[in-house]
Write a protein that binds this DNA or RNA. Sequence first.
DNA 1: TAGATTGTTAATCGATTAACAATC
DNA 2: TAGATTGTTAATCGATTAACAATC
Lengths: 204, 204
Amino acid sequence: MKKISRQTAERALLYLRTLEGLLRDGESVVSSRQLAAMTGLTDVQIRKDVSGFGKVGRPRIGYRILDLKKTLEAFVLQDEVVHIVLFGAGNLGAAILRYPGFHQDRIKLVAAFDVDPLKVGRKIQGVRVYPVREAVRMIAKTHADVGIIAVTAEASQAVADVMVLAGLRGIVNFTPTSIRVPRRVSVRNIDLSIEFLSLFCGIR
Amino acid sequence: MKKISRQTAERALLYLRTLEGLLRDGESVVSSRQLAAMTGLTDVQIRKDVSGFGKVGRPRIGYRILDLKKTLEAFVLQDEVVHIVLFGAGNLGAAILRYPGFHQDRIKLVAAFDVDPLKVGRKIQGVRVYPVREAVRMIAKTHADVGIIAVTAEASQAVADVMVLAGLRGIVNFTPTSIRVPRRVSVRNIDLSIEFLSLFCGIR
DNA sequence: TAGATTGTTAATCGATTAACAATC
DNA sequence: TAGATTGTTAATCGATTAACAATC
């Protein structure tokens, strides 16, 4: 199967999001032209991307939304269900748990962890908060693949170490710090202030 | 002044973050090699980026951290102070207000807005929450440049319209929706679930 | 001086765009 | 059929990497 660059993956996910909106509006077919207008990309870019995933469109008609959605999902998530755990049930953690995009069939938030005894035992969006010391056991039990770090910057490395110990394959780090992990673990760093400030390279 | 790509801007901000950490540790000089190890990039990439901002390094010695920091800040933020307003004081909004990176000298969060009467009047991280109907007036009064959308997906377009009306030049949209604004307004869309899922293109 | 490090110019690589053929 | 739309191949563009010269 063809390798897919992060740029392409991000666009594929944007297409998916847009397709879901169209389905909610009762649409069943869409052209690359329409998709381009809705995403702010070009129709050529969309056809190029989509053709990389398989021949799914019909000349003269466009793409059947359900078909395209299925093709994209298969490619991006390889038809697997991803089990996620969250470290840190503060504001950021709660925002992540409540974020609409995290409530899809293919993504399952199975547990959250926090050091604050006041938070332990609570449920946020149906996800229970456990003490951090139960993390390794719970990760094994739930067969989680990926973990999210949404704790304070100071605690990020310690949490990362726990995640590695528990055998997670991927980490998404929302703290503005660089964490060190073995090569076999994929890391995606998301620094909100960097994402934010990068707006300014386009502002003037 | 040279144009700067978003990739370069994001790396520059990563360098800044790393330099600030080094300063806290009491360091005063750093080489591209060390910076590379800490950021996970290559030394060549760093020298290439930095040389685009000006001749600031010393062969054989490296970069004086304070000099490099000043040069980067000048380039990324053009020595201006940015005034920001936030729409939506829920979990995500609160997380943004509390995010360490948003408390730098060059970024000033001047006001937050929410429709919830329970949130109006409160202060989060020293920033007062106002009712949305006061947004246009407050934005004019505070000379805000940029706004953050951290409301529900359903309300995003309405909030964007208010922001455009108030004359903001830039919008950072944290909702998983595409907003429509006039060409003159810069928009940066940050969909946390897309950022998150894009990890999977690297995971296997 | 010798050696280490920056800075720059050229080469490579990859992603986007353009042109056009295929197809319903 | 004619026209619209997809899909592919080639051209362009930009970003990264490599090679090396400059410098303290």
